[in-house]
Amino acid sequence: MAVVVWIAEGTWPACVDAARAHTPADAEIVLLHVTDHEVAATAHAAFAGLLGRGHPERDPGARMANLAAASARRLLAAAADRLGRPCVQLARTGRIEREVVAAADGADLLIVARDGDRTHLGPRSLGPASRFVVDHAPCPVLLVWPATTPGIDTLPSPPPHPPHHE
């Protein structure tokens, strides 16, 4: 069984715990972290536009990319330690939602945490990237709450129905 576990800041412990609880001990687990490519690109563009290109060594884009890569390595290492069994650590850079979907191609399961409104049940419990991933994943998805699941009393009210005429 091949399992991809999306490791994202703030929600990764729940995903790792779900992998430990819901996958066989011999599963091939890939811990995936994706860094948004826009961060370093924005810093580089600001530098190029405001300060020119005369001093590439001062370009904050490269520094931002290096800091992001180091942060991803630390997060993946912490996730691997929490998992406590053999796994592959995969760091990618790009459009987050598309990289997660691409990494799940060929997997038997993708584990994703809700990253939106954590106080209510319902569709707003998914942020835009996780909504895209859930809608486009090429494999089954295990969707977990990153903390305590809200009570059933937080379920949104049903939409009003027009009166039925006969």
Rank of each mutant, 00 (worst) to 15 (best):
L51Q: 12
A43Y: 15
I152C: 11
P156Q: 02
A102E: 13
P128H: 12
R124V: 04
H44A: 14
A2W: 06
L142R: 01
T42N: 11
P24R: 14
E57N: 10
V101N: 04
S71H: 15
F132Q: 09
A102V: 04
F132D: 10
A46P: 04
V16I: 02
L142T: 05
T154S: 08
A40R: 02
R74Y: 07
A70H: 13
P123F: 10
I111W: 01
D81T: 15
V5S: 02
P163M: 05
R74L: 13
W12C: 00
A78G: 09
R131M: 08
A72Q: 01
P128G: 14
E28K: 12
A27G: 08
R20M: 07
G122S: 00
D81S: 13
P160E: 05
P128R: 14
P150V: 04
A137P: 05
D108T: 06
V34R: 01
D117M: 02
A41F: 07
V30Y: 04
R131H: 11
P13G: 01
A21S: 13
D108H: 10
A14C: 01
T119F: 08
T42Q: 11
T35I: 11
V34L: 01
V39M: 12
L121V: 03
R131D: 12
L143K: 01
G106T: 07
G122T: 04
A45W: 12
P150K: 05
G49P: 05
R95T: 14
D153W: 04
V39W: 12
A43K: 09
E97S: 15
A48D: 14
T42V: 13
A72H: 03
D117I: 08
G127I: 04
A68I: 05
P163C: 03
A48E: 14
L76C: 06
R98I: 10
P150E: 09
V88M: 11
L126W: 01
A18W: 01
A8T: 08
T23E: 05
E9W: 07
M64H: 15
A137W: 02
P138Y: 05
R58F: 11
A147E: 13
L31Q: 05
L126N: 09
C139E: 07
D59S: 10
H33E: 11
V100N: 00
A137E: 09
G122A: 01
L50H: 13
A70K: 14
V88G: 08
V30H: 07
H22E: 11
P162A: 15
A62Q: 14
H44L: 08
I29E: 02
A18S: 06
V5F: 04
H22S: 10
E9L: 09
D117C: 03
P146T: 10
C87Y: 09
I96K: 04
L155H: 03
R85H: 06
L121F: 00
C87P: 03
S71G: 15
F47P: 03
L126A: 04
I96N: 06
A104D: 00
P150S: 03
T119M: 08
A65F: 09
H161R: 14
H33W: 02
A77C: 06
L51I: 09
G116I: 00
